[in-house]
Nucleic acid binder design. Structure first.
Lengths: 106, 106
DNA sequence: TTTAAATGATACCAAAAAGTATCATGTTGC
DNA sequence: GCAACATGATACTTTTTGGTATCATTTAAA
């Protein structure tokens, strides 16, 4: 059983991966399409996508010879859940947020 | 000029450091006191505290020969700010959160 | 049916991260 | 003053990470 919290935080720790998240928030893209936005090889980008997938932050849908990488916002839930612990310092507002999110994702 | 967003995400990527955050949320502690909670040397814990400090997630106050490590919740602001970008997937609730936080921490 | 395109997989490399051990420095208290 | 204590600092080792290069496999398309 994977530690989703750890995998998600790990995935977010790299700036390239956070950029990929933003990129995919606009459009679902293939690996090649994502690669064109970064100054590194396709293989390196694919590794980042694997880490994001392990963290539950994206989903990958095979389509013919392509793989469509799609953002998975609910993958951020463990991160928000962890951050929510600190809402005691912010007057319980993060708790409200978490409840709202949990209501949204199935 | 440090990249606070990167430093904060980097600091949160390690499970020990996240545990230290929780620990310090209850009480401000010296390095030795923090060390007693983990199965590693004092030097290793101190390194983690340095990373947390670099990320703006704790503050360190010298007191005599001790250093009081105190949680700094506002250091999470860059993280929440980045996450807020994805509130488009959650009906703008994270944006409300960010506004609320910004109102709290001068 | 070939050929080109998209991806998978592997080996390899360099740098960063996590940890230890050790010694130096500064403080407290008797 | 001096011994014990808390921390600082450095060197070193191991593992992980981010990256490249290369070749194999699968699929689309002419």
């Amino acid at each position: 059983m994977p530690d989703q919290t750890q995998n998600a935080f790990r995935a977010l720790a790299d700036p390239t991966r956070r950029d990929i998240m933003r990129l995919l928030s606009a459009n679902a893209l293939t690996i090649v399409e994502v690669s064109t936005h970064f100054d590194m090889t396709r293989a390196a980008v694919k590794k980042h996508l694997t880490v994001l997938s392990d963290g539950g932050l994206i989903t990958v849908e095979p389509r013919g010879r392509e793989r469509i990488n799609r953002i998975n916002p609910s993958g951020l839930a463990p991160v928000l859940s962890w951050l929510e612990f600190f809402d005691q310092f912010w007057d319980d507002r993060l708790a409200d947020l978490k409840t709202a999110i949990e209501k949204d994702i199935q």
